[in-house]
Nucleic acid binder design. Structure first.
Length: 469
RNA sequence: GGAGAGGUGGCAGAGCGGUUGAAUGCGCUGGAUUCGAAAUCCAGUAUGGCCUCCGGGUCAUCGGGGGUUCGAAUCCCCCCCUCUCCGCCA
């Protein structure tokens, strides 16, 4: 959520930000609703103040009168009763008017909130302006010794690549038909060495985060309330991408949502809290199953492990003070961690600076990391794919957009009483998402006979095995 | 799933229809005392919105939402959550 005050001060900045991100939002409508609401509110407040004053006076007065009434007779009694009546009826008009204003304010509220939630965080000035992911800008690329991006897979390795689907079938690593039978399209079953490799990468990723980078490992809910989805910025915009569990229709309980990323659980953790600055930066890592409906992706990446409804992901999150310099530094750190991880796995990859059009509502800046996947890309005359980078990681810098929605603050100058509360800054990045990451692992580590060498870094998690098949 | 008890400030805990944004204790901050510290004493100590002549003013908030009332932390209804006992269970 953006800061409404900041919007009032500088609506142009948010209008331009939305435009750069390709979002159409009615800022003028928001401002006029806001202005109207504030006018109504202050009118109502002065009436409430009056009402409060009256009732503060009438309390003791009524007490006295009721006391007198006990001993009063005849005319005196009637007089007292009349006074009691007049005291009681005095605020009636106020009450009516207040209720009326209340109604008007309540009528404005939902629309105001809906627009406010939909206004994106303006991208940083150094983010390249662009419309779609085609306008993203490559920052750098890396490849292990022996891999030349200028050459085809065959030229590099001396044999034609098999796709990860072929390799999975060959070694019985993934059962697609039974996955579909069990759970519908975009479903799969990891089997035997496929499951072992999947587990190995997740364990390697989380161990690296905990042992080498000091992140605190967490296990968080993947089935959460709507507030957590709204708070983390996924709703209302991404509501059609989440699976919904309609508990309310079963009588009692509230509807829940399956999270598409561990970020929701990690960030939702401190919702509505005032955090202790001395504990900053908070660095969390989780491994969680992620659920995505992939609505609107029909026909896209239908085969294989690339775009699926359910997967497991190790996710990192950093929460710190509201300081742009620190946020930027954390962003670099989190990206660096992934680069090191991919290097230790020997996977060719590149860093991609996402353009404004590719950022989404909540990001001021986003860097994607893509691994080289030989089975993707254009297919030539004899059916050989060119190979292409495929997204495996995404590092977001959000400033206070998310924490504002989550109402997650800290007290400046530390502890106790003193200092204003400020919304925290948050960042997140993938560490490893599997089985998608199995695509480059299997395809890049395949040998001519179809066997797959296990990357050295994963062998400790594979009982020392060096090869599949 | 059944039965019961609860949710009040950073924490503990009172209040159960009126001047209560809320006693008291602990914690925390500042000051006094002290060579210094402990102890003691004094003062301060919630969050958010709106307005502001920047002195402050004002409203909301006692789990959340409705209602009763001139007036609700206090009474009523719905929801959420926690705890205890029983049942079931990885």
């Amino acid at each position: 959520m953006i800061d409404l005050k900041a919007l009032r001060d500088n609506p142009e900045r948010f209008a331009q930000g939305a435009q750069k991100k390709n979002y159409s939002v009615d800022i003028d409508a928001l401002l006029s609703l806001d202005e109207r609401k504030r006018a109504l509110q202050s009118e109502q407040e002065s009436m409430r103040a009056e009402q409060k004053k009256l009732s503060k006076e009438s309390g003791p007065k009524l007490g006295q009168l009721m006391g007198k009434l006990k001993n009063a007779e005849g005319e005196e009694r009637a007089a007292i009763e009349a006074e009691v009546q007049s005291i009681k009826s005095a605020p009636a008009q106020l009450k009516e008017k207040i209720a009326e204003l209340d109604e008007q304010i309540n009528a404005i509220e939902p629309e105001l909130r809906a627009i406010l939630l939909s206004i994106p965080l303006p991208p940083d000035d150094d983010v390249p302006v662009g419309k779609t992911s085609d306008d993203n800008v490559e920052i750098s690329r890396w490849a292990p010794e022996g891999w030349d991006y200028g050459k085809s897979f065959e030229q590099n390795k001396g044999f034609k690549a098999r796709s990860h689907m072929e390799l999975c079938e060959m070694h019985g690593l993934v059962d697609f038909p039974r996955g579909v039978k069990l759970a519908g399209s975009r479903s799969y079953i990891l089997c035997g060495d496929g499951m072992r490799l999947h587990n190995a990468i997740l364990r390697f990723a989380i161990d690296t985060m905990v042992n080498s980078h000091g992140f605190t490992p967490m296990s968080v809910p993947v089935l959460v309330r709507e507030e957590a989805m709204v708070g983390t910025g996924f709703f209302p915009g991404g509501k059609d991408q989440a699976y919904e569990v309609n508990e309310s229709t079963r009588g009692g309980g509230s509807d829940m949502y399956l999270t598409g990323t561990g970020e929701v659980g990690l960030m939702g953790l401190h919702q509505d809290e005032i955090l202790d600055e001395s504990e900053f930066p908070k660095k969390y890592v989780t491994v969680s199953t992620c659920f995505r409906r992939e609505a609107g992706a029909a026909g896209k990446d239908t085969a294989g492990l690339y775009r699926i409804h359910q997967f497991d992901k190790v996710e990192q999150v950093i929460i710190d003070v509201a300081d742009e310099t620190k946020s930027r530094a954390h962003h670099k750190t989190m990206i660096g961690i992934v680069e090191d991880l991919l290097k230790s796995l020997g996977l060719p990859h590149r860093l991609l600076q996402c353009c404004t059009g590719d950022l989404g509502v909540k990001n001021a800046d986003m860097v994607d990391i893509e691994c080289w996947m030989p089975s993707r890309g254009e297919v030539d005359a004899d059916g050989t794919p060119s190979g292409e980078f495929g997204e495996t990681h995404s590092a977001s810098r959000l400033y206070d957009f998310q924490c504002r929605r989550l109402n997650m603050r800290y007290r400046e100058g530390g502890e106790s009483g003193k200092g204003a509360t400020t919304f925290c800054h948050s960042l997140n990045n993938t560490v490893a998402a599997s089985p998608r990451i199995l695509i480059p692992i299997l395809e890049m580590y395949q040998n001519e006979d179809g066997s797959v060498t296990i990357p050295e870094a994963l062998r400790p998690y594979m009982n020392g095995d060096t090869q599949i098949g």
